[in-house]
Simulated assay, not measured.
Amino acid sequence: MSSLTTDPRPTADSRGPGKGPGPAAVGGVLARVGGQNLGLIGALILVVVLFGALNENFLSLTNMRVIAEAATITGLLAVVQTVVVICGGLDISVGSQVGVASVVSAMVFTSTGSNAVVGMAAALGVGVLVGVLNGLVIVHGRVNPTIATLAGLAAYKGLAQLLSDGRAQGYVLDDDWFVFLGRGSIAGLPVMVWILAVVAVVVHVLLTYTDIGRNIYAIGGNDTAARLAGIRINRYLIAVYALIGIVAAVAGILLTARTGSGQPTSGSEGLELKAITAAALGGCALRGGKGGIGGTLLAVALLGCLENGLTVQGINSFWQNVAQGVLLVVAVVVQQRRNAERAVGLPD
Rank of each mutant, 00 (worst) to 15 (best):
S2G: 07
S3N: 14
S3Q: 09
D7A: 04
P8H: 03
P10A: 09
P17I: 02
P17K: 10
G20K: 12
A24I: 11
A24W: 10
V29M: 14
V33N: 00
G34P: 08
G39A: 14
G39W: 07
G39Y: 03
A43K: 02
L46D: 04
V48P: 01
A53P: 05
N55L: 00
N57Y: 05
N57F: 00
N57W: 05
M64A: 09
V66F: 15
A68T: 07
A78F: 11
V80C: 01
V84R: 09
V85E: 09
C87F: 03
G88K: 05
L90N: 08
V94A: 03
G95H: 10
V100W: 09
A101H: 02
V103Y: 05
S105H: 12
S111D: 10
S111P: 01
M120L: 06
A121R: 00
V126D: 01
L133G: 15
N134H: 13
L136E: 08
L136N: 06
L136F: 12
V137D: 03
I147Q: 15
T149V: 15
T149E: 11
G152R: 07
G152L: 06
K157P: 06
G158P: 14
A160Y: 05
D165P: 00
G170N: 07
L173Y: 14
D174V: 09
D175A: 12
F178T: 09
V179D: 07
F180H: 00
F180D: 02
S185I: 11
S185R: 11
L189I: 14
V191E: 05
V193K: 10
W194A: 02
W194H: 05
I195M: 07
A200S: 15
V202D: 01
V203F: 11
V205L: 13
T208C: 09
Y209H: 14
T210W: 14
D211H: 11
I212Q: 01
G213E: 12
G213R: 10
I219W: 10
G221H: 06
N222I: 03
T224E: 11
L228S: 09
A229M: 13
I231Y: 08
R232G: 00
R235F: 12
A242W: 08
I244P: 04
I246N: 14
A248Q: 13
V250P: 04
V250A: 04
G252L: 04
I253E: 00
L254F: 03
T256F: 10
A257N: 05
G260M: 02
S261D: 07
Q263A: 10
Q263N: 14
P264S: 06
E269A: 05
L271H: 02
I276S: 13
A278N: 14
A279K: 06
A280L: 15
C284P: 13
A285W: 00
G291Y: 12
I293T: 05
G294H: 06
G294P: 06
L297E: 01
A299F: 02
A301M: 11
L306I: 02
N308I: 01
N308R: 00
G309I: 02
V312M: 03
I315R: 12
S317F: 02
W319K: 04
W319R: 04
G325N: 13
V326C: 15
A331H: 15
V333N: 08
V334N: 11
R337D: 00
N339W: 02
A340W: 01
A343L: 09
G345Q: 13
L346I: 13
